[in-house]
């Protein structure tokens, strides 16, 4: 490993630089991904995206970083068409909530072209999108909607919990010949951690044990990995040994890793930032019961957001989001 520490945002920026350097077909498009910087010969500097994640890229690749109008249906639809015909676009959907304004090109086009065309199309598209709560951004800028994209056959969905995975997963996403939704959880975006130098990929469908334990398995991904680790730390102080599995990739899903940790501990708590119905937590719980039943010593527990929109007030938002306290309470219910 390396001592070099970067934020997730910086790791993503580095991955984009590498992807664009190594493949001339990679283009970046989205609202303000340059951000004013395209004013040629001007003293005006660029913002590099609303959160500054893509800063510097338009200077390095002026022809391949495209500021778009505020036209998500157009952006994502165009990216799908470009992907199907020879480019390898990375489209930015500023916040995942805006999925509502561009679902068709993902749901009915990107996800299905290859299948409908009898295997004759490929859509090497990456959609980067900021997901999740934690910034008091309220109901329309805080949702975790990866359960929607995960549920659509033909799309892949990945979600990093740390900078090293963010970089490697993004490079894999861009080089994958399928449409990939790359989620950037808000509370993870500025978390810093070691990031290897150079070009490397983190393969899809490979979960990672981020803490070993023997009494209970906490299954988490994205923003909830930190929550699960906090809970594990406190559980350890009380004599309960929790293992924490970071899924990293929701589709494909590492079923083997889930069933392995389940077999080891006999108890599973799934921690998911999204709403509870039809979600990843329910999906993983079903897998545990369906295929891991013989190893289960306790019921399978889910810690999720409640079935309601994301509230604005900080006290309500804090109560909305899964917390270490709620994970510990769920573990307590097992015994």
């Amino acid at each position: 490993m390396t001592d070099r520490k970067l934020s997730v945002a910086a790791a993503i920026n580095e991955a984009l630089h590498i992807a664009m350097q190594t493949d001339p077909d990679v283009i970046l498009l989205g609202e303000d991904v340059a951000g004013g910087g395209a004013r040629d010969g001007d003293d005006v500097d660029e913002m590099g995206g609303v959160l500054g994640v893509t800063k510097g890229l338009v200077k390095a690749f002026p022809d391949r970083v495209l500021d778009t109008p505020i036209s998500e249906m157009g952006i994502i639809g165009t990216a799908v068409g470009a992907a199907a015909t020879g480019l390898r676009p990375v489209a930015e959907l500023m916040f995942m909530d805006f999925l509502g304004t561009c679902l068709d090109p993902l749901l009915n086009q990107a996800a299905k072209l290859r299948y409908m065309f009898g295997g004759k199309a490929r859509v090497p598209l990456t959609v980067r999108t900021v997901s999740g709560a934690g910034m008091q951004a309220a109901a329309q800028h805080s949702q975790s909607l990866y359960w929607i994209t995960t549920g659509i056959p033909g799309l892949k969905t990945v979600i990093p919990s740390n900078p090293a995975d963010a970089k490697g997963l993004l490079l894999s996403a861009i080089r994958d010949d399928n449409p990939v939704i790359f989620c950037e959880p808000k509370t993870v975006l500025y978390a810093s951690g070691p990031v290897p130098e150079g070009d490397y990929e983190v393969p899809f469908g490979k979960a990672k044990i981020v803490r070993e334990g023997s009494d209970v398995s906490l299954i988490a991904f994205g923003a909830t990995v930190r929550v699960a680790l906090q809970a594990a730390e406190r559980l350890a102080a009380d004599g309960t040994s929790a293992e924490v599995l970071d899924l990293r990739s929701l589709q494909p899903l590492d079923e083997e890793a889930i069933l392995t940790t389940l077999a080891k501990t006999g108890s599973v708590v799934i921690v998911d930032e999204a709403t509870p119905r039809c979600g990843i937590a329910s999906d993983v719980a079903a897998l545990c019961v369906d295929q891991g039943f013989d190893h289960l010593n306790t019921p399978v527990k889910r810690v999720t957001a409640p079935h309601c929109p994301v509230p604005f007030a900080k006290v309500l938002e804090d109560a909305y989001m899964p917390s270490a306290e709620r994970v510990i309470a769920a573990v307590a219910e097992l015994s």
Binding site: Q136, A137, A138, A139, Q140, H141, P311, F312, A313, L316
Partner: peptide, 12 residues
């Protein structure tokens, strides 16, 4: 006591 009971915020 907010217009939207504190549930909406500036954008809502």
């Amino acid at each position: 006591t907010g217009t939207c009971k504190g549930k909406g915020g500036s954008m809502h």
